[in-house]
Amino acid sequence: MTWLNRFNFKKHPFFATILLFFVVVLIMIFSAGSGEYPLSPQNVLSALFGLGDDFARTIVIDFRLPRIVMALFVGISLAVSGAILQGITKNPLASPDLIGITAGASFAVVLFLSLFSDENNSLMVSIHWLPLFAFLGATLTALIVFFLSWKNGIAPFRLLLIGIAVAAFMNAGTTIWMLMGPIYRASQATIWTTGSIYGANWSQVKVLVPWSILLIVIALLLRRQMNILELGDDIATSVGSQVQKNRVLLLLISTGLTGVAVAFAGGIGFVGLLAPHIARRIVGPKFQTMILFTAGIGALLVLVADWIARVAFAPIEVPAGVWTAAVGAPYFIFLLLTERRRGRV
C-alpha cells in the first residue's frame, strides 16, 4: 500500500474522484451479485445488458437493482446535503439530522401511522403515501427552523442552535405520540427511524433520482458562491455576493436533498456528518473539488451498509442505518490517525 501513501490525492483530486467512481461501480456490481442466489460479476453484467437467463435478469433488475440504485442516490443526497450545511454554518458538527430535518420526517411518519390506522392496526390508506408525508414533515420542519432563525437574515450559528432545539421538540413529539399509541405502531416507527432501504422498488427510484440529480446540479452550479460564503459574511458581501439570497438557496437545496432521501430511506444517520469530513481529509477542503468526492463517499457508505444489511445476517435484516456508522466511523478514525504518521515524516 506504500504507493497509495506516496500518492497525494490532494494534488490530484480529479484522479481521486475517478478512482472512487470505479470503486462505487465495482461495489454495485458485487452487491448485485450477492444474496440468497449468488451471481458472478459476469452474470450480473450480462443480466444488466439484457443477456443471460430470465431468472438472473429478474433477480438483478427487478429485485436487487432498485435497492442498489436507491442506496446510491440516498447516499449521494445525504452526503451533499451535509457538505453544504457544514460549509454554510462553518461548523464541523452540522449535519441534516442535527438541525431537525430527520426528526421532522420521523414525526410526520409517526403521525401518518397513527392517523391512518384503524383499530386493528391496518392502514386505511396506501403505504405509498408514506414517503410524501415524510417529505412534507422534513420540509415543514426546515421551514420552521428557517422562520425561527430569521432576523434580518439567517445567521448560521443561530440556525444551528434553533435547529437543535426544534429537533429536540420534534423528537419529544414523536415519543409522546408513540407512548400514547399501541406498541405495534411504536415498533414500526422505530424501524423507520433507524433507516432502511428494505422495500425499494423502481417507482420509488423514479421519484428519488430526478429530484436528487436536479438539486445536486443546482448545488454544483452554485459551487463558487459556496466557496465565497465559506470566507465569512464580510468578505462575501464585499466581493459582491448576495449573501442572504445564496445562503437561503443553498439551505433549501440541502434540506430538499435530505427530505427526499429520508422520505424513502428513513433516518439513515451519520452519512451527512461523516462523508464530508472523510472527503476533506482525502482531497482537501476546497468545495468545488470535495463536493463530488463527498457524493462518492456517501454513495459508498450507504451501498456498503445496505449490502451488509442484506447479506450479513440473512434472513434477518439489520437496518442499513445501523451499518453506515459501523463502516464509516472506523475509516474516519483511521484517517485521523494516519495524518499523524504523515506529520511525523
Binding site: 464541523p92 458538527l93 456528518l273 445501523v322 451499518w323 466511523a329 485521523l336 499523524r340
Partner: peptide, 30 residues
C-alpha cells in the same frame, strides 16, 4: 484527538468525539 503533530486541537477533539459516538451508537443499535 491528541495524536498528531499539532496536538490536541478543538476541531480534532470534536471530530473524534462525533466519530466515536457514531461508532458506539451503531454497535448499540445493531
Amino acid at each position: 484527538s491528541s495524536a498528531g503533530r499539532e496536538g490536541l486541537t478543538p476541531l480534532k477533539l470534536t471530530l473524534a468525539g462525533s466519530a466515536i459516538t457514531a461508532l458506539f451508537a451503531s454497535f448499540t443499535q445493531g
